[in-house]
Computed example of a mutant assay.
Amino acid sequence: MKKKFSKLSNLVIGCAIEVHKTLGPGLLESTYQQCLAHELRLNGINFQLEYPLPVQYKKIQLDCGYRVDLLIEKEIIIELKSVETLKAIHEAQLLTYMKLADIKHGFLINFNVKLLKQGLKSFVL
């Protein structure tokens, strides 16, 4: 299981790098989201775009309008940004999504950087 997960993570990062290499920084988050979705499709990676994420509160389920940018093979959550600087609130958002969805691995990807490795953060619960 661990090798498959690691391979999937590497494939996803490779797709994000390809999108960034092709487009560069400075575009809207929605553009990167659609292009990353296309790149994932080209690589045969299953995903869900704008995956709805309800909140469980005291035995009731609330649809509060939260959406995960990309849920990859029900194993990885990707939260995309195109901002000048990633902030602690962006990390908290991803970690909360991971807890709510019971997903152990997530990537926070900021495309508004010179090199994608500067905008890529990995989180494991």
Score class of each variant (00 low, 15 high):
Gln34Cys: 08
Ile45Gly: 07
Leu86Arg: 05
Glu18Asp: 15
Lys2Leu: 08
Cys15His: 10
Ile76Pro: 12
Ile103Val: 12
Glu50Tyr: 14
Lys58Trp: 02
Tyr51Ile: 11
Asp102Met: 06
Phe47Lys: 01
Leu80Glu: 01
His38Ser: 05
Gly65Pro: 01
Cys35Asn: 15
Lys59Tyr: 12
Lys104Ser: 04
Asn46Trp: 12
Gln93Phe: 11
Ser122Trp: 13
Leu8Ser: 05
His20Ala: 04
Tyr32Glu: 01
Thr31Ser: 15
Leu86Met: 08
Gln34Phe: 15
Lys99Gly: 00
Ser122Asn: 14
Tyr32Trp: 05
Leu27Cys: 06
Glu75Ser: 12
His105Gly: 05
Leu71Trp: 04
Gly26Phe: 13
Leu42Glu: 14
Val68Ser: 00
Gln118Lys: 10
Val113Ser: 10
Arg67Gly: 03
His105Trp: 10
Cys15Ala: 13
Ile45Cys: 05
Ile109Pro: 08
Gly119Asp: 14
Phe111Thr: 04
Thr22Val: 12
Ser30Thr: 12
Thr85Trp: 05
Leu27Tyr: 11
Glu75Phe: 02
Ile89Pro: 11
Asn46Ala: 14
Val68Ile: 14
Ile45Tyr: 08
Ser9Trp: 12
Leu94His: 03
Gly26His: 07
His105Ala: 09
Phe47Ile: 01
Leu115Ala: 14
Leu8Pro: 04
Lys99Leu: 01
Ile60Gly: 00
Phe5Arg: 10
Pro54Leu: 02
Val113Gly: 03
Met98His: 00
Leu94Asp: 01
Tyr66Gly: 04
Gly14Cys: 14
Phe123Cys: 01
Ala37Asp: 14
Ser9Arg: 12
Gln93Asp: 12
Lys121Tyr: 08
Lys2Gln: 13
Lys4Cys: 06
Gly106Met: 06
Leu53Ala: 02
Lys21Glu: 13
Leu95His: 06
Ala37Phe: 05
Lys2Ala: 09
Leu120Tyr: 02
Leu49Tyr: 02
Ala92Arg: 15
Ile103Glu: 02
Glu50Gln: 14
Leu100Thr: 00
Lys3Leu: 11
Lys99Val: 07
Gln118Tyr: 15
Lys21Thr: 15
Val124Arg: 10
Ala88His: 10
Leu62Val: 00
Cys35Trp: 14
Leu42Cys: 14
His38Lys: 11
Thr96Pro: 00
Thr85Asn: 04
Gln33Ser: 06
Lys7Cys: 02
Asn112Gly: 07
Lys121Glu: 13
Glu73Leu: 07
Lys58Pro: 00
Phe5Gln: 14
Leu27Val: 02
Leu125Trp: 15
Ser30Lys: 15
Gly14Met: 09
Asn43Gln: 11
Lys81Pro: 00
Leu71His: 05
Ser9Ile: 15
Cys15Leu: 07
Leu120His: 00
Glu84Met: 07
Gly119Tyr: 13
Ile76Glu: 01
Leu86Trp: 12
Met98Phe: 04
Ser122Asp: 11
Leu108Cys: 06
Val68Asn: 01
Ala37Gln: 04
Ile89Trp: 10
Gly65Gln: 04
Tyr57Asp: 01
Asn110Met: 11
Ile45Ala: 06
Ser30Cys: 07
Gln34Tyr: 15
Ile78Ala: 04
Leu42Ala: 15
Leu42Tyr: 09
Leu11Gln: 13
Asp102Lys: 03
His38Glu: 08
Phe111His: 09
Ser9His: 11
Gln93Thr: 11
Arg41Tyr: 11
